[in-house]
Nucleic acid binder design. Structure first.
Length: 701
RNA sequence: GGGCGGUUAGCUCAGCGGUAGAGCGUCUCGUUUACACCGAGAGGGCCGGCGGUUCGAAUCCGUCACCGCCCACCA
């Protein structure tokens, strides 16, 4: 007998364990049924379940269980992501607690330590997914750094390299001085910063008392200036073009160049050009063949090596001793010192308060530093073309469709993708260097050696492997096929690629969806999924973004403990409309918990009245108005619910289930059934029992 | 600067060309043996403003306002 009180915490784990143990979630590659595939967006192995996970996995599980009940051969592929930076940071923090720096123990031992951490703590998220009720095919669980997926990564890298789509290049990157690695454009976020705009007088060479004034928010970078640019049509400066200014402090002669980049409206209309520390300036530098000295090191400290030979004393303008005193100084301290020195030299015309957007590392939290380094790049523009076309021609469809615009906008203007990271945890780049710097890209060290021997015409040259690892998204971009055994030609690969639906949030359309489209099409010749369902963000009940600093985080596990996974899952469905964020608070879950309770009690009523599943019951033979009516209503409800799911309308789906269960079944059918059931053993009572059991089981499904 | 989304009952939202809907909350009534985490019923909205198209507009078009987000930009 069902308990009087519904206690999900006693029921849900038992049911889940039973399902998992009996293989209820397993795909069957040998089945004749039509497959239905969803690849889980692999959560970070460091992760623990948050509301965003609860939303995305509830939506996925809803689709998965629905298709499974329709008889499809369902694969919901589980797994986790090695999450390069995030994981490395977690383990570094643990080491720091023991007073150990990763550099102390060296690369190999550090990586060993990360694997050890993963073995001990890496299973948190998958345990929590089970508590949510997610019906993933667990025995197929993969990890982006396991052997098979690492093979796929090497295969892709080597192939793209040989096709000329991966190359090394020396150009400006977004450098995170705290993590000391390059990061991609997507990992940079602009933050509004209240700073100053310093107007600095640069003396004109050979014309005592005349200056050209430049405005800058970053006076410390002036050490690396190699030109001043003015707009070609700017009459104020026409006579100065082609002449030289003297760079204060340093004494370098700076050509005054005409370039469209200079905006007469901004600042003074004359802009200092620091090619090695600003993306726009870099382009100007290339156009005018300017030197590009770096004056900051990888920790964003002043480094004078590249300008040491141009330091020139100039009376009242430049003092090499001062500049040398800056060597090794942090960029912020250097800024202060430089401003003070300019003031002392009376070269600071004025200082204005200035609010502007400053690019920050979205992980390290510090301002990024554009730095001139050699990195590996992927020619994304070439890979993007067929991906754009696939969406244009509807091979892949976004739901809601408006996200296609977002996808197109980014893909049509895609920049070279910097894929190397100066980290230890990740897929090490399969490139080896000879003593003269020649590059050998190969699957293994041994193959690289063979290539090197051929190249040098002799054996035995010592090769050194590239120290860098690949961007995490490089490997997760392969997820739709690497998890299925590619580059092996597996039965799974043939059967479950392409996937049916990808479910994710708009925040990773660029990071992940775009990369899967590009790499999937390139290597599989076919889009990785037919539909991309984009859901919103989970916010708190007031519509605020959840964040640690605001203290408004809602823990889904707490909600599950208190109200049950079903209540949380139903709430999520009910609130998930198209293209809308989900505002969720405990009160909403509580109100839908009542729905689950209602259903529990309806089942209890059935049980008390001898209503049991009856295989011999045939709804086609129902004869009473009451039973014929409820069966008809049930079929309509099923139609509504199915149509809602076909259209990815989880809100409508929940509403259809809610309405039929509560209003139709409980409030009307059960009430009308009571007098009939009182009759005990009559033919009518028998039919009502059979119908009730039949309808209840349909509701449960 | 470019783009996207939103603005409908107290709250959260659906409806997107044919006389305003749901859930929650509110109010009234109800000690019916599944359920008070219940049942029956009620009240509540010039559908952000203005203009246009139409026999007819919350729904289509234009425009403005406010809220939120994305992309670009360290002069």
């Amino acid at each position: 007998m069902l308990d009087k009180t519904y206690t999900p915490s006693e029921i849900e784990p038992r049911l889940y364990e039973g399902w998992e143990r009996t293989g209820a979630f397993a795909a069957d590659p040998n089945s004749n049924a039509r497959p239905f595939t969803i690849m889980i967006p692999p959560p970070n192995v460091t992760g623990s379940l948050h509301m965003g996970h609860a939303l995305t996995f509830t939506v996925q599980d809803t689709l998965i269980r629905w298709r499974r009940m329709q008889g499809r051969d369902v694969l919901w592929q589980p797994g986790t992501d090695h999450a390069g930076i995030a994981t490395q940071m977690v383990v570094e923090r643990l080491l720091a607690e023991q007073g150990v720096d990763r550099r102390d123990i060296g690369r190999d031992r550090f990586i060993e330590r990360v694997w050890q951490w993963k073995a001990e703590s890496g299973g948190t998220i998958t345990r929590q997914l089970r508590r949510l009720g997610a019906s993933l095919d667990w025995p197929r669980e993969r990890f982006t750094m396991d052997d098979g997926l690492s093979t796929a990564v090497r295969e892709v890298f080597v192939t793209l390299y040989r096709q000329g789509l991966i190359y090394r290049d020396r150009r400006l990157v977004n450098w995170d001085p705290k993590l000391q690695t390059a990061i991609s454009d997507l990992e940079v976020e602009s933050l509004e910063v209240k700073g100053s705009l310093w107007h600095i007088r640069y003396p004109i060479e050979g014309e005592a008392g005349r200056f050209i004034t430049v405005a800058t928010t970053r006076p410390e970078t002036m050490l690396g200036d190699t030109a001043v640019a003015v707009h070609p049509d700017d009459a104020r400066y026409t006579d100065l073009v082609g002449r030289f200014a003297i760079l204060p402090l340093v004494g370098r002669r700076l050509p005054i160049v005409a370039d469209d980049y200079s905006d007469p409206e901004k600042g003074t209309g004359a802009v200092k050009i620091t090619p090695a520390h600003d993306f726009n300036d870099f382009a100007v530098g290339q156009r005018h063949s300017l030197p590009m000295p770096s004056i900051l090191d990888r920790q964003a400290r002043v480094a004078l090596a590249e300008i040491a030979d141009v330091l020139t004393p100039v009376q009242g303008v430049a003092d090499p001793a001062f500049v040398r005193s800056l060597d090794g100084m942090d960029r912020n301290a250097a800024r202060k010192a430089i401003v003070a020195e300019l003031e002392r030299l009376e070269l600071l015309e004025k200082t204005e308060p200035h609010t502007h957007q400053v690019p920050h590392s979205d992980r390290g939290g510090v301002p990024i530093e554009p730095l001139l380094t050699t990195q590996w790049y992927c020619n994304a523009a070439v890979l993007a073309k067929p991906a754009i076309e696939a969406v244009e021609t509807g091979k892949t469809v976004f739901v809601p469709q408006q996200w296609e615009n977002t996808f197109f906008a980014w893909m049509r203007d895609i920049q070279p993708w910097c894929i190397s990271r100066q980290l230890w945890w990740g897929h090490r780049i399969p490139a080896w260097y000879g003593p003269d710097g020649a590059v050998f890209v190969a699957y293994t060290a041994a193959e690289a050696q063979v290539a090197a021997d051929a190249h040098y015409g002799r054996g035995g040259e010592t090769l050194t492997q590239d120290e860098d690892v690949l961007d995490t998204w490089f490997s997760s971009g392969l997820w739709p096929f690497s998890t299925l055994g590619w580059p092996e030609n597996t039965q799974e690969l043939a059967r479950y690629y392409p996937g049916d639906v990808l479910v994710t949030g708009f925040d990773i359309i660029f990071f992940w969806v775009a990369r899967m489209m590009m790499q999937g099409i390139h290597f599989m010749g076919e889009v990785p999924f037919r539909t991309v369902y984009i859901h919103g963000l989970v916010r708190d009940e007031r519509g605020q973004k959840m964040s640690k600093s605001k203290g408004n985080i809602i823990d889904p596990l707490e909600l599950i403990d208190r109200y049950g996974a079903d209540a949380l899952r139903f709430t999520i469905c009910a609130l998930t409309g198209p293209g809308r964020d989900v505002k969720l608070g405990a009160a909403r879950v509580e109100s839908y918990r009542r729905f689950v309770t209602k259903l529990w009690n309806a089942a209890r009523f059935c049980e008390m009245n001898g209503i049991r599943p009856d295989a011999s019951f045939d709804p086609a033979h129902a004869s009473l108005p009451l039973t014929r009516w409820i069966l008809d209503a049930m079929n309509h409800a099923i139609e509504d619910a199915s149509a809602a799911l076909e259209a990815y309308r989880f809100d409508d789906y929940a509403a259809a289930c809610y309405r039929f269960t509560w209003d139709t079944f409980c409030d009307w059918f059960v009430e009308f059934a009571k007098p009939v059931l009182m009759e005990g053993d009559s033919v009518a009572a028998h039919e009502v029992r059979g119908t009730a059991a039949y309808v209840l089981s349909s509701i449960l499904r």
